[in-house]
């Protein structure tokens, strides 16, 4: 039986009257890619932030890599690689300075990973010219690629990637998917993936969790979702849409139901 790297028990987060995450029992096996799916505002980011120890749960328990983050969030700091939803970097610094900053913050010497970085640069078509420009001068796709390198180069056992291929062209997106697969298959790392891009999910997701209105309504293998939510079409995309439910259930009507 595979080792569990993330386990939550009744994990909940309330913001005043809003229940952002509601009694979630999540379980992620080590060495797998787990896709956390859900419509906008379902509570994915809040759940991820609780796993990172950045948000304190209202109640419930979360254990990540053997650390009970709900009790001692300090102990998880620096143990999870993160790729936030939006490109998070210092816009006035060059991409190389941003990468070196993340490496230094994680006590990794540039020389030790320089070959790996060069390899990523080549595959993601990051040219030396781009590396000398301020981060703000790069295109959205180039920025995303740099942020992805910043997340994976830290060599963490557990990586949380929020929309890793958002804004990327087809070639870069494909290569990022390859890197993620390699991290899991060749290096034994675990990836928690949050994405709305079906091609990413179809190719990468081994296990899925579906979060709707803060509740984890389903957790299991990709095939099980298809079996449950799209038995007729057997399409993964249909299964996700059906699992999310009708749009009116997820988004409050600004016109008050007119």
């Amino acid at each position: 039986m595979s080792e569990i790297i993330v386990e939550t028990n009744q994990l909940s987060k309330h913001f005043q009257t809003l229940v952002a995450v509601d009694k979630v029992d999540l379980s992620i096996k080590k060495g797998t890619i787990y896709a956390l799916l859900g419509p906008n505002g379902a509570g994915k980011t809040t759940l991820i932030r609780m796993l990172l120890g950045l948000l304190k749960p209202t109640y419930g328990k979360a254990v990540v890599n053997g650390v009970e983050v709900s009790i001692s969030p300090k102990d998880i700091r620096g143990k999870i690689g993160i790729l936030p939803q939006f490109s998070a970097a210092y816009y006035d610094l060059t991409p190389m300075k941003n990468i070196k900053f993340i490496l230094n913050l994680n006590n990794i010497k540039y020389e030790d990973v320089s070959q790996k970085i060069s390899h990523y640069f080549r595959r993601l078509e990051i040219t030396p010219n781009m590396l000398n420009k301020p981060f703000s001068k790069l295109s959205g796709g180039e920025q995303r690629a740099i942020c992805f390198i910043m997340a994976v180069i830290t060599n963490k056992e557990f990586i949380i990637a929020d929309e890793p291929t958002s804004g990327l062209d087809i070639a870069r997106a494909k290569y990022i998917r390859t890197i993620i697969k390699d991290l899991v298959e060749k290096e034994g790392k675990t990836v928690l993936l949050s994405s709305h891009i079906v091609s990413d999910l179809e190719e990468l997701a081994e296990y899925c969790g579906i979060l709707v209105k803060g509740k984890l309504i389903f957790q299991g293998k990709k095939e099980e979702i298809i079996e449950k939510y799209a038995p007729e079409t057997r399409e993964f995309e249909d299964a996700i849409i059906n699992a999310f439910g009708p749009l009116s259930d997820k988004v409050s009507d600004p016109f008050g139901g007119i």
Binding site: L54, R77, A88
Partner: peptide, 13 residues
């Protein structure tokens, strides 16, 4: 604004 707060808080001991 640069959304680096999350990274700083997650990596800094």
């Amino acid at each position: 604004r640069m959304r680096t707060m999350e990274i700083l808080l997650a990596y800094t001991h």
